[in-house]
Design a protein around this nucleic acid. Structure first.
Lengths: 337, 337
DNA sequence: CTGTTAGCGCATTCAT
DNA sequence: ATGAATGCGCTAACAG
């Protein structure tokens, strides 16, 4: 491996001079600078980031943990985060937790060992608290995305889940629907709770009674069991005329289940949900959705994180909470009754 | 920051003993071992990976570069790679190049600086050659995925693109189609070339003449311009009865363009393509496709890479080339004429 | 079974 | 404008 000492020797200077050339630090004569640079090219020198990090006590490495790499909401978010990181000269390490606390734990461990400068994460759920405490304890700045964790104050970027749920229900009610079901993620996840809350509020606001039988709590992730949804459908008599899905994955799963029962959307049942589907499904977009600004989640979250990193030693400003507005996009998946 | 010296002092042993406990190396009395471990817990010690890597000359960090993070083919591939890496105790850094040589170059740079132990990459194109030479020069083992690069021998995992294209054309011909168009990625990408080749061969085999006007060369990426496709459609008179798309993104773009012209699939035009669409589009899968084993691309590629890393100093075995078979899945997007 | 010495590659003092 | 000494946190090699 080529080191600054190799360069130094061949260029007839000291290692320190080489280091200065690399970092554009201190005053160096133009002559030696060009000479050193030429030797670096000749030898194909690449600075050793580890050695550098070891002495500088910073890695310029950030970590992004998402809960489902196949969900376009999160990949779009990842793009935003990456763009913002790159703009500031940081690199980004991705991790996919699948909403699995053990996997999340592994990644937290990796973060600490790697001495990443900061972490951006969508926590698996409320039970992620010890992981966050771990980060806090080791003074690793982090920003939460999409989900809060009770008991832990921090910077966070959220969507307006409650308002989104209200709007979805309102849209359905506007279409004449009065029997409206909800399929949702686990209540151990703040966004799922908020969505349930918004759903209930909107029902009340429209003089509709909340019926537990019309609510299914399952998983936001791609592993949710189709038979569970089918059984739920079969339990409800009569079938609701409309459904709210807590996210895009659940919307798709529900459509599959409906199809397996010979039911079409929107002819036999109306459906609205949170988040856009994959762009590939958008050849002919027909689901009415609350569209969240996925890219902004990542971009703004990353900016907050970088702010936090750069002011690490200064007195910390208060925790910031960004709530991105919910935008309703009306398409064709709601039938007018 | 807590170091092994802090542990050592508090536990009344030497730093070396602490190191041994951490790595389960050498013989240590059970008494000191438990004592050291307790102190480590108390102080919340986490090993410094950088210091470790610096002396061990290995990072146990691998890098995966893909060309489109929003393409489910690549995210599925990424899952496979991640699973295989994790199984062997390696961590994986993702990079998204968008088929952009500059971005690819930045990532190559990052790989070298970080001293990643190895790289798995879908190259942006033939022009990625200098990047690969860079890796080779610095003895960073790498495995190519999905695409070869002329002039560079290496391990590689490919799909059988030529055979896939043949099968798609054959399927169309079997449906009575004789005027078959191809929309494809850039010819600077090996898989695009292979697909074009297979398309031409299949035409010849069926006594159909190759017509340049029926072939559009654009980009596999998400940035391809819709107007280019629309112009192409408008140029072709009469319109082909069937289309082959070089990948899933192009299939979607083409469908959009067809729709903008009031044309439906398969009623007005048949369409087949490489790669499945996003799972979310698969609620009602209707495209006839060559389904590639995306997960296997990543998993097998990673295994080859790890093999290569582990035998780095031994005499290198010859380069290995895995060609994954093309599987035709017939659905409803081809109309029988 | 445990400790000492040395060095991984680099940048921050302080000299000159 | 440049160089020498020192240490970041850790482990390999050797000594005991």
């Amino acid at each position: 491996m080529v080191t600054i000492y190799d360069i130094a020797e061949k260029a007839g200077v000291s290692a320190m001079t080489v280091s200065r050339v690399i970092n554009n630090a201190g005053r160096i004569s133009e002559k030696t600078r060009t000479k050193v640079k030429r030797v670096m090219d000749e030898l194909g020198y690449v600075p050793n980031q580890m050695a550098r990090s070891l002495v500088l006590q910073e890695t310029r490495l950030l970590f992004l943990m998402i809960t489902d790499i196949t969900n376009p909401f999160y990949t779009t978010l990842a793009r935003g985060a990456e763009d913002a990181a790159k703009k500031h000269g940081y690199r980004l390490l991705f991790g996919n937790t699948d909403e699995d606390l053990e996997k999340e734990n592994d990644y937290i461990d990796a973060v600490l060992k790697t001495r990443a400068d900061g972490v951006l994460l969508a926590p698996a759920g409320d039970a992620s608290l010890p992981h966050l405490e771990m980060l806090r304890r080791h003074r690793v700045p982090f920003v939460l995305l999409d989900r809060e964790v009770p008991g832990m104050d921090s910077d966070v970027v959220l969507g307006d889940s409650k308002e989104g749920a209200r709007q979805l229900v309102k849209q359905l009610v506007g279409g004449g629907h009065r029997r409206i079901a909800l399929i949702n993620g686990s209540r151990t996840i703040s966004s799922a709770r908020e969505r349930l809350e918004g759903y209930r509020e909107a029902l009340k606001l429209n003089d509709l009674t909340y019926d537990e039988a019309l609510v299914l709590e399952t998983s936001f992730g791609p592993r949710s069991d189709l038979t569970v949804i089918e059984a739920w459908l079969d339990r409800m008599r009569p079938l609701p005329t409309a459904f709210v899905a807590g996210n895009n994955v659940l919307a798709v799963e529900l459509m599959r289940a409906l199809r397996s029962r010979g039911l079409r959307v929107p002819e036999d049942a109306s459906l609205v949900c949170f988040d856009e589907l994959a762009s590939y499904a958008e050849m002919d977009p027909f689901l009415t959705v609350i569209s969240q600004q996925a890219y902004q989640f990542g971009y703004l979250g990353m900016q907050m994180l970088l702010d936090r990193i750069q002011s690490r030693d200064e007195q910390a400003p208060g925790w910031r909470k960004i709530v991105l507005p919910a935008e309703l996009i009306v398409r064709r998946s709601v039938r007018q009754l």
